[in-house]
Design a protein around this nucleic acid. Sequence first.
DNA 1: CACGTTTGCCAACACTTGTTGGCCTACACT
DNA 2: AGTGTAGGCCAACAAGTGTTGGCAAACGTG
Lengths: 185, 185
Amino acid sequence: MAFTARSQESRAAILTAARRRFAADGYERATVRAIAADAGIDPSMVIRYYGSKEGLFAAAVDLDLRLPDLASLPPDQVGETFVRHFLELWEGEGPGEVLTVLLRSAVTNDGAAERMRTIFATQVATALGGGEDGPTRAALVASQLLGAALCRYILRLPPIVALDVDALVADLAPTVQRYIGEPLA
Amino acid sequence: MAFTARSQESRAAILTAARRRFAADGYERATVRAIAADAGIDPSMVIRYYGSKEGLFAAAVDLDLRLPDLASLPPDQVGETFVRHFLELWEGEGPGEVLTVLLRSAVTNDGAAERMRTIFATQVATALGGGEDGPTRAALVASQLLGAALCRYILRLPPIVALDVDALVADLAPTVQRYIGEPLA
DNA sequence: CACGTTTGCCAACACTTGTTGGCCTACACT
DNA sequence: AGTGTAGGCCAACAAGTGTTGGCAAACGTG
């Protein structure tokens, strides 16, 4: 039952292959067989190590957003800092893949949607702190950031893809800043 | 080969059932058998009428956004009008289902993504008019609106779901207004 | 009324899916 | 060296998929 050092290599190979497949195809179309083939291993081993396809998925999307401590920043820079951190997460090799997996499959798989919900209900909401309408503000921020990620990394809308990170940050930061700070309707 | 009046009822039943199933489950998990069962008809008829599952899908996502003429509005109301129109499209029974289908499957299906791209590259961009950076502005608008739709109708983030349409319009309108009118970075 | 066409269902096909059990090999430990 | 345990692959399963062909009944048209 317990893991030994010898199998760690296979486990890791399976996990990275799973992330890549899940990211590329989404939960439903990514098959255990394809993941196993990418990892150069038998499909049955995938089940043996991770229990089921869903267990593998859960292991593949285990990510800490590592949101910075925004409370210690000058209030008027929170928006820009937050947007930049989020976008650089997406641009990165590892986290970007995990986030792609999450978003791609949260759209069709309810388990992934639940995971996304908790991530943005806990990590984002607490990072932003906030009073009684804190959750609403966090959700508005999420709507803009997830929308941007959707258009840039999933749908690949050309005008959004064409922008470099700095320009995108400059465009989005005021929006996020307003959702965090300005009074709501 | 040609359609007769007698079959129109079944065709329509299949189409509405397909829209509902595609919207609820996404392309992959919506099975022809389930759609046929919902329509109270044999699965083979679905294929006979629409050729294949993909043909049925193509027929199910045939929608005109019916974007209003924004040019004739006072410039400072364009944002709010646009946001409200978009949200009410989503709230509506028929169009909302089609949009859900489109977004749900654009994330994993490349054909649907292409359809989405052209919709937001042509319909939205031309509705907003605009000069040389018009496409960029339109894409930024799309990022916020699609993000909001994603959070509200797909991921169902509670704080976004809890808002009524008026409140959401009030929160999002300034963002869209800024993307349309204010200078970009 | 008889004809051909259309509608519809049943059964089946060929295939893919996640998952399981059996068997052999290679390692670790005493 | 001998033994127990874990790694790994093969083959197979049961279930579900989209799709096809054949056949009975209902229809519209002459």
